[in-house]
Computed example of a mutant assay.
Amino acid sequence: MALIAGAALALALSGCASSDKTAGSDGSSSPLSGKIVWADFGGPTNKARYTTYFDDFTKQTGVKVVSEVESDAVANTMLTGGKGAYDAIHVGLDTVYRYKANIAALDAGVARDTNLPANIRDYAFGTFYVGHVQAYLTATFPGGGPQTWADFFDVAKFPGKRGWMGSPGSYDSACEIAELASGIAPDKLYPLNFDVCTKKLNELRPNMVFYTSYPQIQQLLTSKTAAVVAGPSGQAFALKNQGIDVTISWNQAIVAPNVMTIPASAPDMKNIQALAKVFNEPQRQAAFAKATGYGPGNPDAFTSMDDATKAVIVNSPTHTQIVHQNSEERAKQTDDLLAWYTKWLAG
């Protein structure tokens, strides 16, 4: 797969050579050079980006990819029209909808991630899908554990504490989960009804154990502090990689797209547009999925995955009962959503 992907990278770059060269002062063209400043949240996901995308790109072009842990202050400044050092910023798709006016459109030579809605594909690349799921040690429920979000809230039928998101900025799909647990149909979730969400979350609050960073999800499960945890599927995937028998329920798993976006004021625009061409390659997206457990933005990537990888990918064609976040609708409620969850956490 690596050889195929490497060849695809060389072809992608050579096939768009005119856009990957800049005009020198004498009118001649010069190859790409310099760097790209890439802002994401570090950890295994960032490491996987190097092995899957960045390292080969640097070998082919000489352009160094410098990763920084994303600063909200810098990202917000650039997304609202100001200047900053970032060439690419890791965001939720709702952020792209909200700040599209200050985001650069992808060059024509950049293939689009067709799993994204058509009205936003020009402004996002490097898509990966996170599943907001419930997970538990298989041994905790030998007769079968919770499947739906209503089951998650049913501590009488499935006893034990529930690991839950305890940071205001990490509300993830908290309201969607509460609405689904309340019996609201997936196609009726938006606009989010904060009164319904508050009422449902209050029912479970006495049995909640809050985490404030995602790695704590693994600690809550392995220590048996929580019987079931709600959170990103990648955390349960990491436990599986450690040989721990964890069950992930894909029934009503909420699919949330994460993407990279290029601020209009990006300092190294030609370099980042060249790198963006690499990210749609199905073999590379499949390799990234295998390394991280996150789903691809290009549906063709599934043809390059083995069955074991597909089984832990939230937007795999085999998962037929998933629920997709509506990022465009969420974008309209971003401020209200954060204010609501901050207030609810405070009690």
Results as ranks from 00 to 15, higher is better:
Gly84Tyr: 01
Thr77Tyr: 03
Val91Glu: 01
Asp94Ala: 12
Thr61Ala: 10
Val63Arg: 07
Val69Ala: 06
Met78Asn: 01
Asp94Phe: 12
His90Tyr: 04
Gly84Ser: 02
Val74Ser: 09
Ala85Cys: 05
Ala88Thr: 08
Ile89Ser: 01
Val91Asp: 01
Val91Arg: 00
Val74Pro: 04
His90Glu: 02
Gly62Val: 08
Gly82Cys: 05
Glu68Pro: 03
Ala75Val: 12
Val65Asp: 08
Gly82Arg: 00
Gly62Phe: 08
Tyr97Ile: 07
Lys59Gln: 15
Asp94Val: 09
Thr95Gln: 05
Asp94Thr: 11
Leu79Glu: 03
Val69Ile: 14
Ile89Pro: 02
Met78Arg: 03
Met78Gln: 14
Thr61Pro: 12
Lys64Trp: 12
Ala85Glu: 11
Val66Gln: 14
Val69Ser: 06
Thr80Pro: 02
Gly92Leu: 02
Ala85Val: 10
Val65Pro: 04
Asp72Leu: 14
Val65Lys: 02
Gly84Asp: 02
Asn76Ser: 14
Val65Ile: 15
Ala75His: 11
Gln60Asp: 13
Gly81Asn: 02
Lys59Asn: 11
Val69Trp: 05
Tyr86Asp: 01
Asp94Leu: 12
Ala88Ser: 11
Tyr86Phe: 09
Glu70Phe: 10
Glu70Met: 15
Arg98Gln: 13
Ile89Phe: 01
Gly84Arg: 00
Asp72Val: 14
Leu93Asn: 03
Val91Phe: 01
Val69Tyr: 07
Ala73Asn: 09
Ala73Gln: 09
Val63Ser: 07
Gly62Asp: 10
Leu93Pro: 06
Gln60Pro: 08
Val74Tyr: 06
Gly92His: 01
Gly81Met: 04
Ala73Met: 01
Ala75Ile: 06
Ile89Asn: 00
Ala88Gly: 08
Val96Phe: 06
Gln60Trp: 11
Lys64Ser: 14
Thr80Phe: 00
Gly62Asn: 09
Tyr86Glu: 02
Lys59Tyr: 10
Gln60His: 10
Ser71Phe: 11
Glu70Tyr: 08
Val96Ile: 14
Asp87Val: 00
